[in-house]
Amino acid sequence: MSENKKSKKKSRRSFIHQASGAMGIVAVSAAGWPLVDQMNPSKDVEALATIEVDISGLSEGQSKTVLWRGKPLFIKHRSQNEIDEAKSVNIEELPHPENDDERVKNPKYLVLIGVCTHLGCVPASDKGDFKGWFCPCHGSHYDSSGRIRKGPAPKNLEIPPYTFKDDNTILIG
């Protein structure tokens, strides 16, 4: 009887300590989240994540660079030649096979994030062996569809999410 009582008392005791410990752990981890989350993009930064670009003044062959989320965006008005060239490539031979059709919404306008997929430098336009872009940092060559053709970069230049608001306005983000 008294033995039973004793063990009962003991189990209640350890239950309280366990509950206390659990509360303490919950408290510490709950306190941790705001300390981590504060480094995520703040609300003003998130609100700037969408921009509108006016492309009415962009004639054939010209390209335009705008800043989006702190990175350069290339918007290129491609000539028919460049479009044909981009389409004629046999994609089986490419390091990162993608059809030109998958990379554009309107074949006349190519929209790219101007950040080399190797280590984040900005490629120069109308340079390199494939008449697209050339990254000066480690020598990656991109073609007129922004696809990697030669050099250390593993992937094609990234396409940002965008839509044509009307014929002359692109909404990016």
Binding site: I16, H17, A19, S20, M23, G24, V26, A27, A30
Partner: peptide
Amino acid sequence: FFLFVMTILFYLS
């Protein structure tokens, strides 16, 4: 509320 409960538990401990 959480801290209130925690305080009671810590007190019992």
